[in-house]
Every structure is written in structure tokens, then in C-alpha cells.
């Protein structure tokens, strides 16, 4: 028993020593879990997932990329590891991490709106029929200038479907259920708060799950409004669901504040997240052309 233990400790030490072949500036890639709306949008924008001719989807995400299941863990990891790179929703950005420019364009709400910052995704709501008066009034609030102000106050980008007009409606009472994407939920919570202040008789129940579940419940008539952080698939629109864009969310590519890199090209981001570039030394810090 004693010998066995000593042997185990020796083994541990040898493995430790041999396992230390990492160089100092290897890029630590931080990704999200398969199925996450943020990962889906990110992979699609940078063409990391591609549909093959035979119908399968090729996901070339780097095998050694760390996988985490929350924005908070991505941010904490990047804020502590000076070699890390990750991606999060722009609405979650803070000073603990640095968002890099993509192709020389800064990730700001303005640049998302004028289309120069390409790394963005729509936040959609989806309804099945437009007959429920409360649903109709809530949507008109979301798209009014009052509703869009709530969206912008949270750091997201207002929708082009939004109108300049202020919200004038009023509903005495009613009850609706909103279900879907966890990314859209914070926006919806804020919109609900603001809406209920104007219409105290209305009850809005928000169920947080994911885009697919949200859209399915709308198609089945279980909930009134679905939330989705991705475009609808044709199989979903075929069920008669109507999508409405309520906001845009930019995705920020984040690195440690100590990292000298300020700008990455789309190709570089692709190469990093597919494992073609593995060291920060392969990226010149002077990429401003």
C-alpha cells in the first residue's frame, strides 16, 4: 500500500513535468457549448460552421478550445488569463475585458446599426397569429420609440422595424406568456417592467429556456410570444410563425486588457477559433493598415 502510494506520487510528478511543454503565448480559446445561441451566431458569422453538400454541418471549432456554459465564466476566464480570447454579447461588456476591433471597426452600438460592424445577430420575437389585443399592444410598445429606448439603454441596438412614434396604447387587463432564448430574456424583462408601468392591469409571464423551445411553444399555442436569438428556420416559418426583429445584439470578441492586440481581421478570428493560429506571436499587433 505504502509503495503503491509512493509510486502514484512519483507518477504524478513525472506526468506534471512532461506535461509542461506549453510555450508562454499559446492562445487559450474560450468557446461556448454546442447549441448555445451565442455560439451559433458566432460560428455562422465567421463561417466556422458550414453546411456540407451532403446536408451535414461541419463545425470546425478548435478541438482544444475550452467550452463553458455561461457568459460570466467566459468573461472571468478572459479577465484573468492574459492569453485567452472569447466572445460574448455586447450588452454584457464591461471593463474587465477588452473588446477588439474586427477589420478595423470598433464594436459599438452605432457601428452595428450602420452595418459596418458585421458581427451581430438579431433578437427576434415570434407570434403565431396577431389577434390577441394584449399581444398586439405589447408589440406596438416594443417597437415604439419608448420601447426602443429601453433596448438601447441596455446596450443593445434598436431595430429598423422600430418606429419614431411614441407609445400611445393602453390595455386595461390581460395575461400573456413569453418564452424562449435566454439571451433575449434580459431585454424582455426590461421591456416588461416598462410596459407594466404604463399598463398595470396586464400580467406578463416570461419563461426563459432557449430559442428552439420558445419557437416550438409558440407554434403549439402554449405561449403567446416566442423569443429567439437567431433567424427562424424555414421549418418554423412554415408552421405560420411570424418573426419580428426587436433589437440587434453585437457580439464582442474579447481579450485580456493586458493583451496588446487591438484589432483582428475576420480571417484571423476564424483561424484562431479553428486552431489554425495557436500562438499570439503569429498575430502582429500592428494590424492597422
Amino acid at each position: 500500500m505504502k509503495q503503491l502510494r509512493i509510486f502514484a506520487i512519483l507518477l504524478l510528478v513525472t506526468v506534471l513535468v512532461t506535461g509542461c511543454g506549453y510555450s508562454g503565448d499559446m492562445i487559450d480559446v474560450v468557446s461556448r457549448e454546442d447549441g448555445s445561441g451565442t455560439r451559433g451566431a458566432f460560428s455562422e458569422i465567421f463561417k466556422i460552421t458550414q453546411k456540407q453538400d451532403d446536408g451535414t454541418v461541419l463545425d470546425s471549432t478548435y478541438d482544444n478550445a475550452e467550452v463553458t456554459n455561461s457568459t460570466a465564466v467566459v468573461m472571468l476566464t478572459v479577465s484573468e488569463d492574459k492569453n485567452a480570447i472569447g466572445y460574448i454579447s455586447m450588452g454584457s461588456l464591461n471593463d474587465s475585458v477588452k473588446a477588439v476591433d474586427i477589420n478595423g471597426v470598433a464594436p459599438t452600438a452605432e457601428n452595428v446599426k450602420n452595418g459596418t460592424y458585421e458581427v451581430s445577430r438579431p433578437f427576434l420575437i415570434a407570434v403565431r397569429d396577431r389577434e390577441n389585443a394584449v399581444v398586439e399592444d405589447f408589440i406596438s410598445y416594443i417597437l415604439s420609440s419608448d420601447g426602443q429606448q429601453v433596448v438601447e439603454a441596455l446596450g443593445y441596438v434598436s431595430s429598423e422595424d422600430g418606429s419614431e412614434a411614441r407609445y400611445t396604447g393602453y390595455v386595461k387587463s390581460g395575461r400573456i406568456t413569453v418564452a424562449g432564448s435566454s439571451s433575449v430574456t434580459p431585454v424582455m424583462e426590461a421591456l416588461k417592467e416598462a410596459y407594466i408601468k404604463r399598463n398595470p392591469g396586464v400580467e406578463i409571464e416570461i419563461q426563459q429556456s432557449d430559442s428552439t423551445t420558445g419557437l416550438t411553444t409558440v407554434a403549439e399555442g402554449i405561449s403567446d410570444i416566442g423569443m429567439s436569438s437567431r433567424e427562424l428556420k424555414t421549418s418554423e416559418t412554415d408552421k405560420g410563425i411570424i418573426p419580428i426583429t426587436i433589437a440587434y445584439d453585437g457580439l464582442a470578441i474579447i481579450v485580456n486588457p493586458e493583451n496588446p492586440v487591438d484589432n483582428l481581421t475576420k480571417e484571423q478570428v476564424y483561424d484562431i477559433f479553428t486552431g489554425k493560429i495557436t500562438g499570439w506571436n503569429e498575430i502582429s499587433t500592428d494590424t492597422t493598415e
Binding site: 506549453y22 487559450d28 484573468e80 488569463d81 485567452a84
Partner: peptide
């Protein structure tokens, strides 16, 4: 995440997350 991972990262390099 906040205590062990940075120690392992500083000692052995890499991301600090893993089996150890």
C-alpha cells in the same frame, strides 16, 4: 475558478483549467 485556476496557470502555463 478564481483561486485554483490562476495558480495552476502561473505554475504550469496553459489555460489553468484541466484534469489537475
Amino acid at each position: 475558478l478564481v483561486a485554483l485556476v490562476p495558480i495552476i496557470r502561473n505554475l504550469f502555463g496553459g489555460s489553468g483549467k484541466g484534469i489537475l
